[in-house]
Nucleic acid binder design. Structure first.
Length: 511
RNA sequence: GCCCCGGUGGUCUAGCGGUUUAGGACGCCUCCCUUUCACGGAGGAAAUCGCGGGUUCGAAUCCCGUCCGGGGUACCA
């Protein structure tokens, strides 16, 4: 049987990295076994539904490279793929009828107040809370008919068998066992006629031929309800794969306190979608061997349920940054430039750094630098690529290219204090800068090799055995900084005209 | 309270009864490369495998208990 999986989020908020990892595993699994991945929206809770987050969901999936062959946006043989629409289409009715007729489910007419009272009683008496029978599990047909005729709103509940074990298999935890007496009768259809997750998701999974259910481990305790439902419906049970959760640095559940956690936050911060995908895939899954930095194709090839961890993992930003750096370095410069331009041009990039600047004073400057480089990349792509190539290996994210390349585009307005102190007021340094400027006179361009020869020549002319006494002050004069790319490489990108200008300014500043 | 899941260096993990003096990666430290930073390379510190009992000639690996962490306990998903 061919593999069919689904990512079925509820559009109630912007998805965080944990949700997206579930989607990623679906994608990887489908790819690995040549199956189909389906995107379905579970919007059966009308009060929590936020339609605008449907866009975030889709954007997040695209960002990390999750693909789906059936479902939202792309359609397919099982349309519609939004549960509220499926309900409207009457898809669930025959299953409701079947369940009621067989006695596997029953109508219950408790009011919310009655339910609250029941729960309170259970709590006070230290009993398990939940609907284990109430007034309606064994109600006579006549009583049900009476309530129905009186127009009382009712819900459909699944009849969980009592006095027996409910046993099932989890793909990564093995055999799981629940005592039927500890599982309450879940609502299948709400009083407003909408199905609950328990019902709609299981029916849809069956209808759509889902073979494996990937979902968060918070679903484990509901799993016995689903098992009973499958049995009642007489359907082939899919394989259950309960995924561990991703927690924050301090071991608590991922939340806003941990900074960026929504998937789209990472796009805004300048992360590469494939780096994020690579990183979150590895929280909770080990590909075997010592491989870590992997493309989507490599991950799909290696993906295996056996490599999935049962224990929860912690989102370690340090490792993400390393992984991102590794990927950034491996990319051809032209592609990095393209990705940067795309990033810098997005509206969300500007608003992200603007919002950030309220607490982080460097964020506003960063945004300005990003925009500056973007402009350069558009007006002179080759020149920008030369800069990017030099910064590629010392940058952690796309956003870092802004501040990193700034010195190429703007003459220094100030010099690093500590370094300036060291070289300032020294006649031989002034002499050096003047000589360099003179050597550059009349030149249109200079290659790496030209610049290297120039600097080496200057060093020997001035009687320096080592390059340091020449390189450091020149770097400071040219860039205002004491760290950065190799001096000749940087000089070649700057060009003679800019160098002459900067040297002149430095001669004054260093005097 | 009740039900369920989990527990290998700070973090992600390998390991599935002997080949393990517990391997890799991130982070940290040292050194090398070198004009700086970074990259790269070589080393190092860091885990009594949550704890306690068993089973076994032998346990991180199997069993029981216990502690800690997490989840569920909705007409949310």
């Amino acid at each position: 049987m061919s593999v069919r999986v689904r990512y079925a989020p509820s559009p109630t908020g912007s998805p965080h990295v944990g949700n997206i990892r579930t989607a990623l595993y679906n994608h990887l699994f489908a790819k690995r076994f040549g199956g189909v991945n389906i995107l379905r929206f579970e919007d059966t809770d009308r009060s929590r539904h936020r339609p605008e987050t449907e866009v975030d969901l889709i954007e997040s999936l695209r960002f990390v490279g999750v693909e789906w062959q059936e479902g939202m946006e792309v359609g397919g043989p099982h349309a519609p793929y939004r549960q509220s629409e499926r309900k409207e289409a009457g898809i669930y009715q025959t299953f409701i009828d079947r369940l009621v007729e067989s006695g596997a489910a029953y109508w219950a007419f408790d009011t919310p107040d009655e339910l609250d009272e029941m729960r309170l009683f259970q709590q006070v008496n230290k009993l398990p809370t939940g609907y284990f029978g109430g007034d309606w599990r064994e109600a006579s047909a006549a009583k049900v008919e009476e309530a129905r005729a009186a127009g009382r709103p009712g819900v459909l509940r699944l009849r969980i068998p009592r006095g027996e074990k409910i046993v099932f298999e989890d793909a990564i935890r093995g055999r799981l066992e629940f005592e039927g007496d500890t599982v309450d009768d879940p609502v299948l259809i709400k009083a407003d006629g909408m199905p609950t997750y328990h019902f709609a998701a299981m029916v849809d999974d069956h209808l759509m031929g889902i073979t494996n259910i990937f979902r968060g481990e918070e679903w484990i305790s509901s799993a016995p309800k689903h098992v009973v439902l499958w049995r009642a419906l007489g359907v082939e049970p899919p394989v259950l794969v309960h995924l561990p959760v991703i927690k924050g640095r301090d071991g608590s559940k991922l939340s806003k306190r941990h900074g960026d956690t929504s998937c789209l936050d990472f796009r805004k911060a300048g992360y590469l979608g494939d780096a994020l995908a690579n990183f979150i895939a590895l929280i909770g899954w080990a590909p075997g061997g010592d491989r870590e930095v992997m493309s989507m194709e490599e991950m799909a090839e290696a993906f295996d349920l056996k490599g999935i961890q049962p224990s929860s993992g912690i989102f370690d930003l340090d490792k993400l940054n390393w992984m991102q750096g590794a990927r950034l370095r491996a990319l051809p410069v032209a592609e990095v430039r393209e990705r940067f331009v795309e990033y810098a041009g997005r509206e969300e990039t500007a608003s992200y750094w603007q919002a950030k600047s309220e607490e982080d004073p460097t964020a506003a400057g960063r945004l300005a630098d990003i925009l500056l480089l973007r402009e350069a990349a558009q007006s002179d792509p080759d020149h920008a690529e030369a800069m990017i190539a030099l910064e590629q290996e010392r940058v952690g994210s796309l956003a870092d290219f802004g501040p990193a390349c700034r010195f190429f585009l703007e003459d220094p307005t100030e010099y690093e204090e500590k370094a300036l102190k060291k070289w300032q007021g020294r006649p031989e340094v002034l002499d050096l800068l003047v000589r360099l400027a003179a050597a550059l006179e009349g030149r249109e361009s200079a290659t790496d090799a030209d610049c290297e020869a120039l600097i080496r020549g200057l060093a020997s002319d001035l009687g320096h055995e080592k390059l340091g006494p020449v390189v450091h002050p020149v770097r400071l004069a040219l860039t205002g900084k004491s760290v950065g790319p190799g001096l000749w490489e940087l000089m070649a990108v700057l060009g003679p005209a800019a160098m002459r200008r900067r040297l002149a300014a430095a001669v004054e500043a260093f005097a």
